[in-house]
Design a protein around this nucleic acid. Structure first.
Lengths: 259, 259
DNA sequence: TGACGTCACTTGTCCTTACGAGTTAGGACT
DNA sequence: AGTCCTAACTCGTAAGGACAAGTGACGTCA
């Protein structure tokens, strides 16, 4: 570590120096970084500059800062929880996922009525402002304490067409799958995976650290005719969970020539 | 908008006010937010406080700030690009993904030798420090200009066992699949999806805006005996890409009672 | 008319100062 | 010895000032 001066801003130089020290292992994971005062002295800069550099490293998810204690190198271990998404097999999953099934509800599910947004409308192939039943659950994985938000959205139209559903459409997803298959639907589904930064309320309920994206998977169940029947959405912190898809080959077509 | 005072810090109050204005649509997407000076006057706070509030909104991905111009509400549209991951069918994908196949290389692939890390070792079921061939490509989707980083990792052991591979193991993935199936392997694979914040170099090569996570999918191809043969990894910005898995039901087992 | 330069606006960087608030260890008092 | 309190560290918040650097519009000059 020395007074490198290549890149642009001062705080970026400080950030770059500390970042490199972290990535090369000079500062081990979980270890305590120099305090702001020490960094000020080390690089002969003011406190705002140091704090600016530290803010950059926080935004990159490299460090965690604890009030009154100091900055710590984040132990960027792999996610503790692998959520297995079952393919080519339907709903004997107990709750949300097949995953040996560790999810537990930590609160009463909250049910409500809402409308399609641009987002959910696209997935459900509906126009905007179509009426939906909604049901939100807060889940927790009992072994890793990982939290997840689960949401079910059912169009009014579908709920009305399926008597067992209409009265109480906010059953657990497995029950919805069951009702639908019992009423003669042959289901297939599509899963769409996305990631985004959490809003403050999502950060709070999922207990996410700084600079932690949300991994979001939306499962849309389709009937035999291809029409979407309902939407099931799971959101959890990308720091502690990953999704796994197991895919079996059936046929082996010849590839096109070059590639 | 008024001088609300509920939550904790001043800058958080300002951030909360602006955030709410954005989420309720008071500030439309792509519209220009009040300047720092205007916010200072509006809430009677100093410039550092305003900048702190703005920094919070940037970290949430709600706004984009352009030097000399101002802050703009980010148009949080859905991703432009849906990357379809094919299931239960093997490698006639032209390049990386089946997706109609728009990826083009924008640079020469760079090949190198490396070793397993804790991460890749876990996926390839190898110890740490096992020798690997590596090949990195920078891809671009010709219609949406979406960029993606692609990496192939092949254990020395595998490359040596497959003559066609040994000489030049850094072929395009489709070619690797082809070679492996030609030499009698019956492949299946596992895809693991994760998200994380980019490091500065990743941000630069993918041209990512602020507060944009990277969506990362690792595909591990297994032989008939279940042993991992090689690893293919794709990383792209979560702002403009999503992953889609299409899943067809085959049997409909009865669910367990309650759920 | 066209090109250029200036100016007023924006955000970016950097400094100084001050105090509040969480944490921890050690010393003083009981 | 045990308890409590203080002091010294940590980071968090807030204010002030100053100048640099992008941007765009307007006005001047050729």
């Amino acid at each position: 570590m020395s007074e490198i001066q290549r890149p642009g801003a001062l705080y970026q130089q400080v950030a770059a120096a500390v970042r490199e020290a972290i990535l090369t292992g000079e500062f081990a994971p979980d270890s305590l970084l120099p305090s702001e005062a020490q960094l000020m002295a080390r690089y002969s800069v003011s406190r705002p500059t140091v704090r600016n550099a530290i803010a950059a490293l926080r935004a990159e998810g490299l460090i965690d800062v604890r009030h009154g204690k100091g900055s710590f190198v984040r132990s960027s271990g792999q996610p503790h929880l692998t959520i297995e998404r079952r393919i080519s097999r339907t709903a004997d999953d107990r709750f949300v996922m097949p995953n040996g099934d560790i999810w537990q509800e930590v609160e009463e599910p909250s049910t409500y009525r809402t409308h399609t947004t641009k987002d959910t409308g696209r997935l459900l192939q509906l126009d905007e402002e179509e009426a939906l039943f909604g049901c939100d659950r807060l889940l927790i994985d009992s072994s890793t304490r990982t939290r997840a938000m689960h949401r079910t959205l059912i169009p009014f139209e579908v709920a009305e067409a399926v008597p067992l559903l209409g009265k109480e459409p906010c059953k657990p997803p497995a029950a919805i799958y069951w009702v639908l298959t019992q009423t003669g639907h042959k289901l297939s589904w599509t899963e769409t995976v996305r990631a985004h930064m959490p809003l403050p309320d999502e950060r709070a309920t999922l207990r996410l650290p700084d600079a932690t994206p949300i991994l979001q998977v939306a499962r849309v169940a389709h009937g035999a005719d291809g029409r979407p029947l309902f939407l099931e959405e799971l959101r959890c912190g990308a720091d502690c969970a990953e999704l796994a898809y197991r895919i079996t080959a059936d046929k082996q077509p010849a590839p096109r020539a070059r590639a």
